[in-house]
Design a protein around this nucleic acid. Structure first.
Lengths: 334, 334
DNA sequence: TTGTAGGCGTTATCAC
DNA sequence: GTGATAACGCCTACAA
């Protein structure tokens, strides 16, 4: 591999001049500059980003830690991040924490060691201290999708409570009476916020919240399935269910199908998050849609800004959700 | 940030000893080692991977370049890669070439500059020379899903031709007669191999291949939709269609639904690749399933081996596909 | 076993 | 405007 010195020798200038030409900051005699560029081309020189990063004490790597890479929700988000990153000259290191606190801590350690320029994370754990290692080391953190109080970083969220409220209010308006809720783990902000929206809407209709209709699952397909089964088996007899994320919606639907229950006639379904290719799913599912790609973009833009300007005020962006009414929650007859 | 020298001073040893303790290669006096470890803990020292990489002239970064991050097929694959990477101490830099040759070349340049330890790529272009820059610079390449002849690297593929053949043979067995094929761009190996399997099966049944029933689209949802529309509009009147990837399957299905055509009674559908949550899609779709996660794992394992042993013989792994017969291709009556 | 010293390839700070 | 020269933080001969 050719180094900057090889180029300098060939162009008959100093290494410093080569560096200046390559970085285009200060002015260089056009004649020398051309000699340098020629030498670069002839040698097929590429600069060594590792050496550059060491010298500049900063990299162009963003670490993105998501809690489930296989969930299409995060996929779309990552794409938003990636688009902004490549447009601003950063590369994205993708890490899958798999809802596992150990893995998450591990990836944080790696990000620190690799001198990541910034981290975008949807926290799986509530290890505030681990996350704060990053800002303490001067590495900005953006929380996305999920919020963790006490972490010194910006965040990009959606109006989870309101989204859930819309979902439940819609079900109530359709005449459903025993509305169940399958939410995620208590430590995750989206789970509690969506549950709160559920409770708020139920109470707003003048009814009490029935704990027998509430389940805390794990945001996974299997968990949604089992929570649905438990609702049915334990005699809670729901006539509708609100599931707090896409995977659990799928799990719950599968459980209903296994039991021979019809959606929406036996049990109506509204899920948080869009499903990919929702149009092919029958019955089509009513969802609370969030602007996933935009969340990724926004987080990335926030990170780029903070890197440029480390002392700017912390921001907390809340993006709107939208209720998309489809067949799974509209009464055909009764 | 504390450096190895800060630790050395605190532990009253030399920097070399600290390095030796941290890397655990050669033996160090247990007493000194403990002093070092204590100093590390007290200072919250973390080694700077950038400096280490410069010195060692190699990083622990794998660059994974996929042609569409939002396609669940690649998502599962990336997860397979990521699992192996993190188990072997590598990090994954994810790049989305978006079926775009320019972006792809760009990411290759970045991988080179960042001194990636290896690259796993599903090529979007057929720029063999660009890809070969990597092995020339000593950076191993693994091609995944798609093959590009002339590239000096290992590859992990599936038996595309055989998979397509199974699909078509199945349709023929079900009595379909005018079987259309929507495949991908000619430059992509999976597109041509799947088309070849289609032709082979058709001919094996004693019929000629009718070019009016074949379309080359772009492996995207929209492309699948338009190709289906063109088949219907141009009077080719297919009674079945084989779509060469998951996104085009969705597009074609949507087109059929728009036209009020019923699957499988008006037109049967078999698609290459599973759809996520295939069980919720109605009618359920017959697919040629490939072991996506395994492809990722295999590619990653191959990369790890090649890094450890750069001169091992080039390998080309072919993983099997499997026909999953569902409702979209089984004649109810006629 | 331990310490010293040189270098990985850049960029930044000086003089000139 | 250009060219020496000194870091950036680490690893590893080599010498002790």
């Amino acid at each position: 591999m050719a180094t900057i010195y090889d180029v300098a020798r060939r162009a008959e200038v100093s290494a410093a001049t080569v560096s200046r030409v390559l970085n285009g900051r200060r002015t260089v005699d056009p004649v020398l500059a051309e000699r340098v560029l020629d030498a670069v081309a002839e040698l097929g020189y590429r600069r060594n980003a590792v050496a550059r990063n060491l010298r500049k004490r900063q990299t162009n790597l963003w670490t993105v830690i998501v809690s489930d890479v296989e969930n299409p929700f995060f996929t779309a988000m990552v794409r938003g991040v990636e688009d902004v990153a490549s447009a601003t000259g950063f590369s994205v290191v993708l890490c899958n924490s798999d809802e596992n606190a150990e893995k998450e801590s591990n990836y944080i350690a790696v990000a620190l060691a690799e001198q990541a320029a910034g981290v975008i994370i949807s926290p799986s754990s509530n290890r505030v201290e681990d996350l704060n290692l990053l800002p303490e080391a001067g590495c900005p953190v953006i929380m996305i999708d999920r919020e963790l109080k006490g972490v010194h970083g910006d965040s990009v969220l959606v109006d989870n409570e309101h989204g859930a409220e819309m979902a439940i209010t819609h079900l109530i308006g359709q005449g459903y009476e025993r509305i169940a809720c399958i939410t995620g783990p208590r430590r995750v902000s989206t789970a509690t916020q969506r549950l709160r929206g559920y409770g708020k809407a139920i109470r707003a209709s003048g009814r009490p919240v029935n704990e027998a209709l509430v389940r805390m699952a794990d945001f996974r397909e299997h968990g949604g399935h089992d929570a649905m089964a438990s609702l049915l088996d334990e005699g809670a007899t729901p006539d509708a269910v609100f599931t707090a994320n896409n995977l659990m919606t799928v799990g719950a639907m599968e459980c209903l199908a296994e039991r021979g229950l019809t959606v929406p006639d036996d049990v109506a379904v509204v899920g948080f998050d869009e499903l990919p290719w929702a149009d092919l799913v029958r019955p089509s599912i009513t969802t609370v849609a969030q602007p996933t790609y935009e969340e990724g973009r926004t987080a990335a833009e926030l990170l780029a800004k903070r890197i440029a300007q480390p002392d700017r005020k912390l921001t907390r962006v809340i993006l709107p959700t939208e209720l998309r009414v489809r067949a799974s929650s509209t009464r055909s007859s009764r």
